[in-house]
Amino acid sequence: MARHIGVPKAVAKQGKKHDRAIRPCGSSRCIDWATIERVQLADAIRALLTTDPWERFFDITEPTYSELTLELCSTFHLQVVMMNNDYPGTIHFRLGVLVRAMSVPEFGVAQGLYTNEFMEEEDMNALPHNIHISPFSCWKALAPLSSTYDPSRSKASALAPSLRYLHAILAHTLTGRIESTGVVNSHDAYYLWCMANAHVTDLAYFIAFAIRH
């Protein structure tokens, strides 16, 4: 699994100082640009990644470190009832024996998803951090010729090849369904719809919510 929902970039480097934390677990899941160039999918995939922060999300290629990831996930707390996601105590966890507390945007910066320019341009508190478009509407836009959407049965094979490729990476990383990459669940449909429609969402919050579960 790539470092998409693992240890934040800024603190993962610190963990490398510890011998017990320098062993990567698993293979990174990321875009193989050389391969998709050969099968002529590169332009279609780049077109889906023109909206931040998705381009930065799929650009993450560092390995995940097992001990650090377990420490983060086992101590992770997300304040899901909140008035303002800029509150520095919204997210806190322990890593390298230190307790970290940060806001959702700060967590996004640590992950490498958000830049200062992005946060200046966007109203961070107004960005969606839940699925606000019905999965049925998302699916019909992504696969207009398919039958009625079923989040437990609708197949990725109904998607265009570029969407199918990105869905496989999502299933191995953000949505964490390695054993079920062929099915497009509600979160998959929403994320792919956001990419296809250049819709900006609070990806850092979605990642934090995934870690929480």
Rank of each mutant, 00 (worst) to 15 (best):
Ala2Met: 08
Arg3Gln: 15
His4Ala: 14
His4Gln: 15
His4Val: 09
Ile5Trp: 09
Val7Thr: 15
Lys16His: 11
His18Cys: 13
Arg20Leu: 10
Ala21Ser: 08
Pro24Arg: 04
Cys25Arg: 00
Ser27Gln: 13
Arg29His: 15
Ile31Glu: 05
Trp33Ile: 04
Leu41Tyr: 09
Asp43Pro: 02
Asp43Gln: 15
Ile45Asp: 08
Leu48Met: 10
Leu49Cys: 09
Asp59Lys: 09
Ser66His: 07
Thr69Lys: 12
Thr75Asn: 14
Val81Arg: 09
Met83Ala: 11
Asn84His: 14
Asn85Met: 05
Asp86Trp: 01
Ile91His: 00
Leu95Asn: 10
Val97Tyr: 05
Ala101Ser: 14
Ala101His: 15
Ala101Gly: 06
Met102Phe: 01
Met102Asn: 00
Pro105Cys: 01
Phe107Gly: 00
Phe107Ser: 00
Ala110Met: 04
Phe118Thr: 07
Phe118Trp: 10
Glu121Pro: 01
Asp123Ser: 11
His129Gly: 02
His132Trp: 03
Pro135Met: 11
Ser137Val: 09
Lys140Asn: 10
Lys140Tyr: 13
Ala143Val: 05
Pro144Asn: 10
Leu145Met: 02
Ser147Asn: 04
Thr148Cys: 14
Thr148Pro: 01
Pro151Gln: 03
Pro151Thr: 03
Ser152Lys: 11
Ser154Phe: 12
Ser157Thr: 13
Ser157Arg: 05
Ser157Met: 07
Ala158Gln: 10
Ala160Pro: 02
Ala160Met: 07
Leu163Trp: 01
Arg164Lys: 02
Leu166Ser: 06
Leu166Met: 10
Ala168Gly: 00
Leu170Glu: 09
Ala171Pro: 00
His172Met: 10
Ile178Pro: 01
Ile178Met: 04
Thr181Ser: 14
Val184Pro: 01
Ser186His: 11
Tyr190Lys: 07
Tyr191Arg: 01
Leu192Ile: 07
Met195Ala: 03
Met195Ser: 03
Ala196Lys: 14
Ala198Trp: 06
His199Phe: 14
His199Pro: 01
His199Thr: 13
Ile207Cys: 06
Ala208Asp: 02
Ala208Thr: 08
Ala208Ile: 03
Ala208Arg: 03
Phe209Asp: 11
